[in-house]
Design a protein around this nucleic acid. Structure first.
Lengths: 351, 351
DNA sequence: ATCACTTGTGGGAGCGCTCCCACAGTACCT
DNA sequence: AGGTACTGTGGGAGCGCTCCCACAAGTGAT
């Protein structure tokens, strides 16, 4: 019934043109007003704003995107091969920070899953089509091709957790080194002497930094580092269990464990139980992340809290700066593109 | 430097017009091919597809949205006043189901937070501007104006967890009634006789259904329902603690508790501990949700698992049907718009 | 041979916006 | 008086698509 041409007319949402007519000005002027251009007189601006309000005008995003060649959307890409990522509050918290930061802007948030190969394929198309102004990358592995693809396409991107000390992409991270130090210093302060460390996945830069922090904290306190007290884990519960069992076998006299994640600590706790060690009486336990698991573990787990929500915020801030920079090409920013946020030790009964 | 007109030309992404030229056909034909219209000869289709492949053509979404008056995007709206919602795996799981279902389609997923007033405001604008083809609503309260706004705007929507038995919106839910029955029947089967129930928030329909299930399971087993064994909670940990304390005071002889959520159960466990009751020896405990908390609790918590990922999938399926129906106005579907998925009891050490 | 369909195709018009050029008006120098 | 420089404004052109009308060509009934 309704012809193509008539579609928009009949009772549809008002267009910029209709606002212009109503306000008795030209299209360009209305456009300037709604985009906050300074080149409009106060009187005209007031008239236009009144017309906008009266008509309930809301700009059409599609038209704007087409004309301006930008989308006002950013994507949060979740390379979700590992279920782990989702099972932890980490993700939700990042999302909250991102959401909060975004609600101050006009940007919209696209959520893209890039777990399966087909999803990756689709993502590549998205990016190639420049359907987003910028990309947020969380939990990326060292060998992921995604970051390079992004720089090749010149799409602004921010990564959470740099891939190495030489990360070229803008990044936001918590202070893994400092967090590990806090944990170990806390244990030392509690009188522990034989402190073990169950690491994270060794191909994750942050896990390396935690090892460095562990080492330095011991050295600086005048303890020497016993390499046999360091056992590789993989952030998983089962990995934590295995690593703990190995450590108990090798160094039965250990009196504390710093685990690279809460989940790892949960696994370690199991192994400790099975070996008949009491927590914290025989062995003190400290985790990392301060996730829900830490609060509900028995005994409640001392853990290093990362300001995850703030990290989400910071990622958005960085990304929006990059996006803006890329727009009418201002002098490129002062290269403050790596951001590290402080951690905090949450002291509970396990240590 | 680059003029407006030159922007797209210089090395930019290929347009439909360029594909048409390359294939030696008209624009309309290319459009038909990429949209899968049957009114194209096989020969022509092959030629066009070859051109698309050679040029690496990807349609411009903004242009398509503008011309066709649709967005190919749906929004997942999170009315996130309560942090609880986020702290639980529920959200992530829904998201995973939604993401999985969506990866089979061309739809993109927008994540919209509608916690604060300002965010609500923005959401209203979004919806008014018809920036999405459909909306997914999770964890909506009985008195939320959002659902009505959506039907007024005639935007297809699916709600997770109907607001009442008379829900008018399409909805997906797990079998709260059946799940509660499973839990209670399990406890009865274990020889428990004085089974208490800590409810969820009473303004949540699902919580009501769980109470019904609790009641009927007892009645059908020939037990009579002791109203003083039912204590209202609010899904929170603190609420669980409080309710449990009240129950212990009122009915010290109880030998089992069915809590309306895992978090509630965690609170109850605390109160039981403080009262010196052992789990499961003195009091058996069953939760609901089978979240990470259940696995890590001490002892591990028996819980009713909802197929949350499947629920996400189902929501998408329902929504896409609605969106399609609304498009070239086919005969409206057969009104199978409420969907209920089965639950499963996960038996652990707490019962 | 004529008419009436059907199938496949080309291309004009239009979606609602931004960008930019042109130009009127005003202000301040020479 | 004429220049030069701004500020503010209007509106044409164009972004890359979809929709639809027009029309060519083929098919079969009359």
């Amino acid at each position: 019934m309704a012809s193509h041409g008539a579609r928009g007319r009949s009772g549809g949402r008002p267009t910029l043109e209709e606002v212009a007519a109503r306000a008795g000005v030209g299209r360009g002027t209305v456009s300037r007003v709604i985009n906050g251009s300074p080149r409009v007189s106060d009187a005209t601006r007031a008239v236009v704003e009144a017309a906008v309000a009266e008509l309930g005008y809301v700009p059409n995003t599609a038209a704007r995107a087409l004309a301006a060649n930008r989308t006002d959307a950013i994507a949060l890409v979740v390379p979700e091969p590992e279920t782990r990522f989702f099972a932890e509050p980490y993700f939700s918290d990042i999302l909250r920070g991102v959401g909060a930061a975004l609600s101050d802007t006009e940007m919209q948030l696209l959520l893209i899953f890039a777990g399966s190969d087909r999803e990756r394929q689709r993502l590549a198309q998205y990016l190639a089509a420049h359907r987003v102004d910028g990309v947020l990358l969380v939990s990326v592995h060292a060998d992921d091709p995604l970051p390079d693809m992004l720089s090749q396409l010149e799409i602004p991107a921010v990564i959470s957790g740099p891939r190495s000390a030489a990360e070229t992409l803008a990044s936001v991270d918590s202070d893994n080194y400092g967090g590990a130090r806090q944990a170990v210093e806390h244990l030392i302060g509690r009188g522990r002497r034989r402190i073990a460390h169950i690491t994270g996945r060794l191909d994750v830069y942050g896990a390396q930094r935690r090892i460095d922090g562990y080492r330095d904290a011991l050295s600086d306190a005048g303890h020497e580092v016993d390499e046999l007290l360091i056992e590789p884990g993989d952030f998983s519960e089962e990995g934590g269990r295995r690593a703990m069992a190995a450590l108990l076998e090798r160094r039965p006299g250990l009196d504390a464990v710093f685990a690279a994640s809460d989940v790892t600590a949960a696994g370690a706790r199991q192994a400790l139980r099975e070996a008949g060690r009491r927590i914290p009486d025989d062995v003190a336990l400290v985790g990392y992340d301060d996730s829900a698991i830490a609060r509900h573990m028995d005994p409640p787990l001392t853990s290093v809290r990362q300001p995850i929500q703030e990290m989400g915020r910071a990622m958005i801030d960085l990304l929006l700066t990059e996006v803006a920079d890329r727009r009418p090409s201002m002098a490129r920013g002062l290269e403050r593109r790596q951001m590290v946020l402080a951690t905090e030790l949450v002291d509970r009964a396990s240590s």
